[in-house]
Write a protein that binds this DNA or RNA. Structure first.
Lengths: 343, 343
DNA sequence: GAGACAATCCAAAGCGGTTTGGGGATGTGA
DNA sequence: TCACATCCCCAAACCGCTTTGGATTGTCTC
C-alpha cells in the first residue's frame, strides 16, 4: 500500500497539517521544514490520494467523455481517437484525469446524469453533435461546464464549442474546382444528421450557387465514411449520363475509395477527374510530401483536441468566463489530385 | 449541487447508516423502510459520491489506461481505439470507470507509478507491448492487477495477457498461399520491435520453412502501417528481378496501399498477384460481403477489448486468481484477393 | 519589561460515504 | 415473570486529505 500523509507526518514528527501545507506551497511554513518534508515525500514516493484530496477540496480534477456505441452509427472512428489523444495531452499536463464511459446510445443521457450526480467529473466534452443536439440543454440544466467538439445548428441556447469552419472550407474547395472549370462537382459526404456534414453540404451549395450552378441531387451522397462507400459513390456517379468531373470527399478514407474507383475505370486522378478531400491530419493516413497526393482542406483534429481541452479547463476553473468559442480555419493544401476540367 | 446521503437521511427522518444499508441491500433493514428509502433516492436522483464511496471502501472502481505519445511511433491508431471501445463497454456494464492518461513516452513509467500511488485505479491495461517490455516488471513490483493486450516474448515472469495467435494465423496464411503455388511471398509487416509484428514474422518464416522455401530479406519489410507504406513496398518489390507473386499484409490500411500499387502497375488482384491481410474487423474499414475483397486473417479487436477487460476485472476482484491468459484464434476468411500463382 | 506582531506549527472539524458496535423494542421459551 | 433472541435502527469512528482557528515562541518597539 502507498504511504499516506499521516504516516509521512508521523515519520517526520510533524502534524499532517504542516506536511500538507509544506507540500502545497503555503507560506506559513519554515523553509527548512519545507525542504525536509519535500525530501521525505520524494524519498517515500508520496502522492496524495486523489479521492481523499478531491473529497476534501470538492473538485474531482477529472473530465468526462461519454462515448455512445450503437449499431447504426459508429462514433469510435479514427477522428474521434485522435481528438481524444490531443485532449488527453492537455489534461495530463494540467493535472486532470480523463474519464471515459462507453455506453449504449440509449443510455447516453443517463450516463451524463450519473457522472455528474456522483461528482465524478468537473467538466464534460461532447462528441459528434447532431443538427439539433439535446445534450446542450441537458448539460446546461445539470449545471456543469462543457465543451462541444463541433456545433449544433438548431439550438438557440448559447454554449461553448470548438469547430472547424466546415462551411467555408467546403465552399472554398468548391470554388477552387469551379475556377478550374469544373461544373459537375459531386459531394461524397458523411451522414448529414451530424452537424459537420450539413455544414459541409451548405458550403458546397454556396460554392455552386455563387457560380450560378444548379446543384444536382444525383451528385450528392451521404453515408458512413468508409473506403467501399467512396468506391461505390464514384462508380455509380461516373455511370451517369453526365458524370461529374470532380469530387468533394469528407474524409481521407472515402478519398481512397474514390481513387480506387477511378483507377478501375482507367481514369487518371487530377487529369480526368479531380478530387478534394477533407484531411484530419491523422498520422496513419498521411497526405504529405513535396506534392501531397490529394488536394485537401486540412486541419489537425489532434490540435483541435488540445485546444478544446484547454478551453474546457478554463471553463472549469472559471465557469463565468464562458461561453467560449473557437472557429478553426482549415487550410486548402493543393496536391496532385486536382487539375483543369477536361473538355 | 447533488443530494448527499446525509440530506437524504434527514429528509426521511432516518440515520445515514440505515439509508446506506437500505440502498446497499443489507439484510438488517425493514422491508417497508427499504422501499421508502429507495423511492426517495429515486425521486431525489441520489447517487453516492464516487470519491467518498471509494475512499470509504478503499476501492477506486476505475481501470487505468496509459497512452504514450511519441514522435516516432504512434500508438493512437485505429486498432487501439476499437480495443478501448470494447474494453469500455465491459467496464461500464460492471460499474467501473475508465481512466485514460495521455503522456509523452518518456514519462510513461512515471505515469503508472503516479496513478497507483494516488490510488486512482484498481487495475491497469497495458497496450502495445514490445518484445521485451519493462512494464511487466514495473507493474508486478508495484503490486497492482494488470492485463496486457498482446504479449512480450522476452520476459520470463508470468503475467496475464490476451492475444491473438499471430504466429499461427500468419503461418496459416503463408501456407494457404504456398498451397496455391506461390513461392515468392512478401511480408509487409508492422514495426518489429512490437511483439505482435515479430510473432507474425515468425509465423511467416515457419510457413516458408515447412515448405522448404528459403526466406528472402528483400521480401520482408517493417514500418508504421500506413497506406503509402503499402504502396511503396509493393512498387519497390515488384521492381525486383524476381518479384513476389503474393503479399502478406499486417493491416487493412497497408493492404489498401498494396492494392493501389497493383492497380497502377495494371495488375489484377487475385489473379496476377495475391494478397492476404490481417483484418481487425473495424467498422469503418469493412471487408465483408458475399465474397470479401481481401482474403484475411480476421479477428475483432473490439471483442478482444471486451474479453481483456472482463479478465482484468476478475483479476481486480480476486488478485489470487491470476495469471489469466487467452489466446484468440484469427479466422482465415477467403476473399477475392487470392488465387493460384501465375506461371 | 510589557504589549504588539510575525513566524511556525498543530488540533480538530469537515468532505460524503461505509462499517463497527451497540441499544431499544418486540417476541419467545422456560 | 424473566432471560434471551430477533429485528431495526443509530451513534460514532474511519477512509486520507484540506482548512479553519488557535497556540506557542521569538523579536521588536517604546
Amino acid at each position: 500500500m502507498s504511504v499516506t500523509l499521516k504516516q509521512l507526518a508521523a515519520s517526520l514528527g510533524l502534524s499532517p497539517t504542516t506536511v500538507s501545507r509544506a507540500l502545497n506551497g503555503f507560506p506559513e511554513v519554515n523553509a527548512a521544514t519545507r525542504k525536509r518534508v519535500q525530501d521525505a515525500a520524494e524519498r517515500a514516493n508520496y502522492r496524495p490520494n486523489t479521492r481523499a484530496k478531491s473529497l476534501a477540496t470538492g473538485r474531482s480534477m477529472a473530465i468526462g467523455h461519454v462515448i455512445p456505441v450503437s449499431t447504426s452509427h459508429e462514433i469510435v472512428n479514427p477522428v474521434f481517437a485522435d481528438f481524444i489523444a490531443g485532449a488527453g495531452e492537455t489534461y495530463s499536463r494540467a493535472g486532470y484525469e480523463m474519464l471515459m464511459r462507453v455506453v449504449p446510445d440509449a443510455d447516453e443521457a443517463q450516463a451524463y446524469r450519473d457522472l455528474i450526480a456522483r461528482g465524478a467529473v468537473d467538466g464534460i466534452m461532447v462528441h459528434g453533435p447532431r443538427l439539433k443536439d439535446a445534450r446542450v440543454d441537458l448539460l446546461a440544466e445539470l449545471g456543469i461546464p462543457f465543451m462541444i467538439h463541433g456545433r449544433t445548428s438548431q439550438i438557440e441556447r448559447p454554449y461553448s464549442w470548438l469547430d472547424i469552419n466546415n462551411q467555408r472550407s467546403f465552399r472554398r474547395a468548391t470554388q477552387f474546382l469551379i475556377d478550374f472549370g469544373h461544373r459537375r462537382i459531386a459531394l461524397v459526404n458523411g451522414l448529414e444528421d451530424l452537424d459537420f456534414a450539413t455544414r459541409r453540404r451548405r458550403g458546397y451549395l454556396d460554392g455552386l450557387e455563387s457560380a450560378g450552378i444548379t446543384p444536382d441531387p444525383a451528385l450528392m451522397r451521404q453515408a458512413e465514411m468508409t473506403e467501399p462507400y467512396g468506391y461505390r459513390a464514384l462508380m455509380d456517379m461516373m455511370r451517369l449520363p453526365e458524370p461529374p468531373t470532380a469530387f468533394l470527399s469528407s474524409s481521407m478514407i472515402v478519398a481512397y475509395g474514390l481513387r480506387r474507383g477511378l483507377s478501375d475505370l482507367g481514369l487518371k486522378l487530377g487529369r480526368d477527374v479531380s478530387i478534394i478531400t477533407h484531411d484530419d491530419d491523422l498520422s496513419y493516413l498521411p497526405n504529405d510530401g513535396d506534392v501531397p497526393m490529394f488536394t485537401a482542406t486540412k486541419s489537425s483534429v489532434r490540435e483541435a483536441g488540445r485546444r478544446a481541452a484547454r478551453m474546457l479547463l478554463r471553463l472549469v476553473e472559471d465557469p463565468q468566463c464562458g461561453p467560449l468559442t473557437d472557429l478553426m480555419e482549415a487550410a486548402l493544401m493543393v496536391g496532385a489530385s486536382t487539375g483543369p476540367a477536361p473538355r
